[in-house]
């Protein structure tokens, strides 16, 4: 439905209080007033109305912070990050070393609050140290995938033509392969280590970003302000990074939070299958080793499983919150 009034009306409403405060005295008698044809028109009062409208970024932040789910997600993620940072201080020893009697249930021994596994390794130490690898892989794989995906997507979307054709073929090659199978193959070929796992996850996740970025760039490339930038003689790099990218970012940011979650899940899956780095403990490998004992000592799979569930949930909540905050259709109504 089209109505021309509603769009204007938001700014009108926002300006209401401001304009009321800056009441300008009425011009004196009409005869003395300047003939309006000679007046300049710097709509001075609407300037004041403009002052109360917050900028895009700040409005988005406000919307994000007013969303309890997003706040919970952020708080939990911060908690996980802090845990990952202080894990070596709390448990300076190798979490893979055997420190106690095996099969201690949580609460049985106060030295091991979450119990021990079949080899007598501390479960709490494992979960704390496991958060390091999960976060490392999740964040690094996303950062790499994001960088490469944005570069490919923006190049394809901005230049179009044969460059676009070639890059789209490349993206399609990756997207037609079942991604988890590809991941397993990649890790199996390389030596499994945190670095190779990260790289492998990045390799299977960049095409999504590239497609998204390309679509955004193709749409924004046609906008008048980009045409204006071209008419002013700006170079390609400036147009891509200064004019288009900042406007293409919101959906990419939203996607990237979900990408971190997906990467964490993939790392866990790999470790569960025994394809992770054998030298470090991760949530996935803990579930993997506890798998056979799930009937007798279910806590060995349940506890690292909960860690994964909550972290991934937190990231998804953040993603939803970002989506609401950065999507103007939602933020307009508030």
């Amino acid at each position: 439905m089209s109505t021309t009034d509603i769009g204007n009306f938001n700014s009108l409403a926002a300006g209401r209080q401001a304009a009321a405060e800056h009441e300008v005295p009425a011009p004196s008698a009409a005869t003395d007033g300047p003939a309006w044809s000679n007046m300049k028109a710097p709509d001075a009062r609407s300037q004041q109305s403009a002052a109360v409208v917050i900028t895009n970024g700040r409005r988005a932040l406000k919307v994000f912070l007013s969303n309890p789910n997003a706040l919970f997600g952020t708080a939990f993620l911060c908690f996980v990050i802090i845990v990952a940072l202080i894990a070596p201080i709390l448990y300076p020893d190798d979490p893979l070393s055997m420190v106690g009697r095996p099969f201690l249930w949580p609460g049985q021994n106060s030295a091991f609050p979450l119990g021990t596994d079949s080899l007598g390794r501390d479960v709490l130490a494992g979960i704390l140290h496991g958060s390091r690898i999960s976060l490392f892989v999740g964040l690094m794989a996303t950062a790499l995938g994001l960088t490469f995906g944005v570069l490919v997507g923006s190049t394809a979307g901005y230049f179009g033509g044969w460059i676009d054709d070639v890059l789209v073929r490349l993206i399609e090659i990756f997207q037609t392969l079942p991604s988890f199978v590809l991941l397993v193959v990649l890790v199996a070929i390389a030596q499994p280590s945190a670095t190779t796992v990260t790289l492998a996850i990045a390799i299977i996740s960049w095409p999504t970003v590239a497609r998204l970025t390309r679509a955004e760039f193709r749409a924004i490339r046609e906008k008048d302000y980009v045409v204006a930038a071209r008419s002013l003689g700006y170079g390609h790099a400036r147009i891509i990074f200064r004019e288009i990218l900042p406007n293409a970012l919101p959906p990419i940011i939203v996607t990237s939070s979900v990408m971190v979650a997906t990467a964490i899940l993939m790392e866990s899956a790999l470790s569960f299958m025994g394809l992770g780095d054998p030298n470090v403990v991760s949530w996935g490998s803990m579930i993997g080793t506890g798998r056979e004992l799930v009937r007798t000592a279910w806590y060995l799979t349940a506890l690292p499983g909960l860690a994964i569930v909550f972290t991934v949930l937190a990231l998804n909540l953040i993603g939803d919150g970002l989506n609401d905050a950065l999507n103007p259709r939602f933020s307009q109504d508030r």
């Binding site: 300006g15 209401r16 304009a19 009409a30 709509d43 009062r45 609407s46």
Partner: peptide, 22 residues
């Protein structure tokens, strides 16, 4: 002169801020 935004919060005649006979 000006624009319709000037009518926001106007207690009197909404056109006053732009009117040459105000």
């Amino acid at each position: 002169p000006g624009s319709i935004v000037s009518a926001v919060g106007e207690t009197g005649c909404p056109f006053r801020p732009r009117c040459n006979q105000a």
